[in-house]
Nucleic acid binder design. Structure first.
Length: 737
DNA sequence: TCATTACTCCTTTTT
DNA sequence: GGAGTAATGA
């Protein structure tokens, strides 16, 4: 192996790779060769024998990034990377540590990882025990608190120091405790535990901590801006001895605040790690000057930044960033598909085109249109393979076969396919299991000894228990692929889909076959099940020319010749909920997300917004995203693609029901969408309700009398609902009476 | 027990 | 417009 990799780097990249000991933060903007630096650095450490591969901890956020890094290092140092035992996602590395020391968390080493659905089921159970009204306090709120605590690295007994939410009768703490206890009894962990429990083990066991501190001579971290507190604490505690931690990140691309990512981790790096060196990578090898200029002008509106400027290495400016305004979301999809057809006809590859959306509900419009127009596309991200119903069912069967006491899985499959074991029976099983403190499986056996069930039900349950017993006996003795096939056959599960007439059943069977196919790559059933929730991803390794549709979050790290960003509308992007919940911090994160979107494009970038779109099934008006006006004009080529006739006919109608009429009008006027007299006319419309004492009707509150008026806000004394302040636009004037 | 229907609340983003 | 849930009927 040669030092060839060094020659491919620019000066600051080289500096980052050659920096040997002590903390290092590489601030790498979009498209500045961050992955190249990281992999070269890894290769360099191995190449110069500063460390064995097995003594390097290299963490990424996604499996994709981990795989990518693995193969790139392989390319540099030649052949397979032997001994890179500690390269993986935070979660998979956490799982690995946890499995080695599971007894310290009172788990068996073959614990299973619960997905979000199962988590929710579990929390619901816990809530019911606490006598809390699910309607008033939705279970997922508790779950998000627990997730929040786990993201901060707090065990149930540590949250007293942290302001406890009053939410849910102040029972959040005990719910967290019970939830953990329940997980433990099921020999399960959730995603958060994969980080929290290893941290706890390291914090409370000096010997073990020592071992890992010695083990990891070098620590490399990808996407440092997206680390949350537990991840930060893990990195800190592990790096304390050797102090060789190198993090790559971009504060302008921090987009996982909602998952607990703390931008302060990267902003405070120099304070947190003594004598830290910071190297900036600012030469962008991806995008044209115009695109970079647009991205730069947008992100400059953020305050929380370390500051860095992307410089293009292109000589010419390239095309300007296109902004197109369409009438409706459907028109928007139409426009984009026409653009794509043009590219298609010019003979260019569709693989170079991506449509990046803020939220997945936006994808539908495009899928519909593409199917109609026969434009090949792929959806990236979307529902994870193992989250599909049929896959989860199959896995539940396999887990039950391995461990019949897994209640969550038991409940999932006991009546799938239908065995006539319904809610009533399950309730009885649950009660019994609580009474005699055993699993549902054991409780079923007990009940079968009695006459509590109707003969028919009893018989069905008996058969089911017998099946499980049989599988459980055989599973260690025969090949895991064969036993999976046997289980699916005997349970009648495959049969169920084969007899199913719905259009999806065929794909489901395909998916199950795919899953079984994957199994042979693992050495045993346990091994397979351990990996299934963490790393299993079925790649759509098709080489067919297709347009990619994905969310902005899953687009991070990718690049395309041409990028479309539809739905540039306030409320959609920036997302309303994000603004409501997090205010300016939320807005800045949305802006970073937009920045990620813009910087995915190499040569062509098209932003579109529609004036109307269906939200929750009903038409809602949309105003252009504030991000559009934050991009400097010099980089933009803007056009409105609907006729004046349409404006006159429809804009009025659109504005009439907008909830923020006044501000919407101002915005639209500022954006040049309305001519002066339209504006006045609409103002009059806003002010049409002027009479105090006027009788009015409100769709939700019924009839009432106007008490006072403040521009578009009206105080009404409703006959049934009492005094309320409502928007004028929601009131109908009632004339007679 | 299961199927149908009425009704609610909703939806951001993912390991 | 759709998923999940509660109520209702077969």
């Amino acid at each position: 192996m040669t030092n060839d990799y060094l020659n491919k780097l620019n000066d600051s990249q080289k500096e980052a790779v050659l920096h040997s000991d002590g903390p290092l933060l590489i601030l790498a903007g979009a498209g500045t060769g961050k992955t190249r630096v990281l992999t070269s650095k890894l290769a360099h450490i191995i190449n110069t024998k500063q460390s064995f591969p097995s003594n390097i901890l290299a963490v990424t956020f996604t499996n994709k990034a981990a795989k990518e890094m693995q193969s790139r290092i392989g390319n540099i140092i030649g052949g397979a990377v032997e001994g890179m035992n500690w390269l993986g996602t935070f979660h998979s590395i956490g799982a690995k540590i946890l499995r080695y020391h599971s007894e310290l968390a009172e788990l068996r080493s073959d614990f299973t990882i619960l997905d979000t659905d199962d988590q929710l089921k579990l929390i619901k159970e816990v809530i019911r025990m606490e006598d809390i009204d699910e309607k008033k306090f939705p279970p997922r709120f508790f779950l998000s608190f627990i997730e929040g605590w786990k993201n901060k690295g707090l065990m149930p007994n540590e949250i007293s120091a942290y302001p406890i939410e009053i939410f849910g009768k102040g029972k959040s703490t005990s719910i967290y405790e019970n939830y953990q206890a329940r997980l433990q009894r099921l020999n399960c962990v959730d995603f958060g535990d994969l980080l929290l429990l290893p941290l706890h083990i390291l914090k409370t066991n000096d010997e073990i901590l020592n071992k890992y501190q010695k083990l990891f001579k070098y620590i490399l971290v990808d996407e440092y801006q997206d680390t949350n507190t537990v991840q930060y604490l893990l990195l800190r505690i592990l790096s304390q001895k050797n102090n060789n931690i190198a993090c790559v990140g971009d504060d302008d691309q921090s987009i996982y605040g909602w998952r607990g990512a703390d931008l302060n981790n990267i902003l405070n790096f120099e304070k947190d790690f003594e004598n830290a060196r910071v190297i900036r990578l600012e030469t962008n090898y991806r995008s044209s000057k115009n695109i970079l200029g647009a991205a730069r002008s947008l992100i400059s509106h953020n305050k929380d930044r370390l500051g860095k400027e992307l410089k293009s290495c292109d000589d010419d400016l390239g095309d300007k960033v296109k902004i197109r305004t369409l009438w409706s979301a459907e028109d928007e999809a139409n426009f984009i598909s026409e653009e794509i057809e043009n590219i298609q006809h010019s003979g260019k590859s569709l693989n170079n085109i991506a449509i990046l959306v803020r939220a997945s509900f936006q994808m539908r419009e495009f899928e519909d249109k593409f199917i109609l127009k026969n434009i090949p596309y792929r959806v990236i991200g979307g529902p994870r393979f193992y989250e599909r119903q049929e896959i989860r069912d199959v896995i539940a069967y396999l887990q039950i076969a391995l461990n019949p006491d897994n209640d969550i899985k038991f409940e999932r499959i006991v009546n799938t396919p239908k065995r006539g074991i319904g809610a009533t029976t399950i309730r009885l099983l649950n009660d019994t299991s609580k009474k005699i403190n055993t699993s549902l499986y054991e409780a079923s056996k007990k009940i079968l000894e009695t006459d509590e069930l109707k003969p028919q039900t009893k018989n069905q349950l008996k058969n089911f228990i017998k099946l499980i017993e049989g599988w459980n006996n055989k599973i260690d003795k025969i090949d895991h692929v064969a036993s999976a096939a046997l289980i699916l056959e005997e349970s009648g599960y495959i049969n169920m889909w084969e007899n199913d007439k719905s259009p999806t059943s065929e794909t489901r069977i395909e998916n199950i076959k795919e899953l079984i196919g994957q199994m042979s790559e693992f050495s045993s059933m346990t091994d397979f099940l351990e990996h299934v929730s963490l790393v299993l991803e079925i790649e759509n390794n098709d080489n067919i020319d297709k347009v990619s549709i994905m969310t902005l979050h899953s687009a991070k790290g990718l690049e395309f010749e041409m990028v479309f960003l539809p739905g540039m509308e306030d409320g959609v992007f920036p997302n309303q909920k994000s603004l409501d919940e997090k205010g300016n911090i939320g807005l800045e994160e949305e802006r970073r997300l937009a920045h990620v979107g813009l910087t995915r494009a190499k040569n062509n970038l098209v932003l579109t917004n529609a004036c109307r779109r269906r939200i929750f099934g009903s038409w809602s008006p949309s105003i252009p995203s504030r991000f559009l006006s934050e991009i400097s004009d010099e980089f933009i080529d803007q056009e409105i693609l609907y006729s004046n006739q349409i404006i006159e006919n429809k804009l009025y109608e659109q504005l009439e029901d907008t909830t923020h009429k006044i501000s919407a009008l101002d915005r639209l006027q500022a954006a040049g969408y309305i001519v002066e007299n339209d504006y006045e006319e609409l103002q009059t419309e806003v002010n049409r309700i002027t009479d105090i004492g006027q009788r009015v009707f409100h769709i939700k509150f019924g009839y009432g009398i106007i008490l006072s008026i403040d521009i578009d806000r009206v105080e009404v004394n409703f006959e049934k609902a009492g005094k309320k302040i409502v928007l004028a636009s929601f009131l109908e004037i009632v004339n007679n009476e």
